[in-house]
Amino acid sequence: MRLENYGEYGVQFNDWHDSRMLALFSDLFQELEERIEQFEKYGDIKPGYRYAPKYVINNRLTTLGKKELKPNGLD
């Protein structure tokens, strides 16, 4: 239900669930950037490549996920 409302109302950042969603998207974006960088540099993804999550690990926010992800300076 919450994800369905993002399209209409946007992410509100009212609670932990919204922060976790932003952290998850941030990890996905970081992995995509790393893969693009490897592809541009080497022509392919390195064998055995695994992304190391920075914002969400085991469904919990890391220190970066809690402190670094402040959209528009919101607390």
Rank of each mutant, 00 (worst) to 15 (best):
M1Y: 11
P53F: 03
I45R: 01
A23Y: 01
N58Q: 11
N5G: 12
R20K: 15
D27L: 03
A52G: 08
W16C: 00
D15K: 02
N58G: 09
K67V: 12
R2L: 10
L74K: 14
E4Q: 11
Y9Q: 14
P47D: 08
S19G: 10
L22M: 07
D27F: 03
K54Y: 09
Q12H: 08
T63K: 13
V56R: 00
L24S: 09
W16P: 00
L28W: 07
M21C: 08
Q38S: 04
K70S: 14
L28I: 10
D18H: 07
F13Y: 12
M1K: 11
T63E: 15
G65Y: 01
G73D: 05
T62C: 11
Q30H: 10
I57P: 07
N58H: 10
G10C: 07
N59A: 10
K70H: 11
L61S: 04
E4K: 10
L69F: 05
Y49P: 03
Q12D: 10
E33N: 11
R60Q: 15
D75W: 09
F39T: 12
Q38M: 13
A52K: 09
L22V: 00
R35N: 14
N72P: 00
I57A: 09
F29Y: 13
D75I: 10
W16A: 06
G48N: 02
T63F: 11
L24Y: 07
I45P: 05
Y55M: 01
D44T: 09
L32N: 15
E33R: 12
L32E: 15
Q30N: 13
K54C: 12
G43R: 01
E33P: 03
S19W: 12
S19I: 06
L69Y: 05
E31K: 00
I36H: 06
D44I: 01
G48Y: 01
F13I: 05
S19K: 13
K41I: 05
F39S: 08
I45M: 02
G10V: 06
L22W: 04
R60A: 15
L69S: 03
D75K: 10
Q12P: 04
F13D: 03
Y9H: 13
L3P: 10
L69G: 00
D18I: 05
I57L: 11
T62S: 14
L69I: 08
L64E: 13
A23F: 01
N72H: 07
Y51N: 03
G43P: 00
L69H: 04
L61P: 01
Q38H: 09
Y6L: 02
A52M: 07
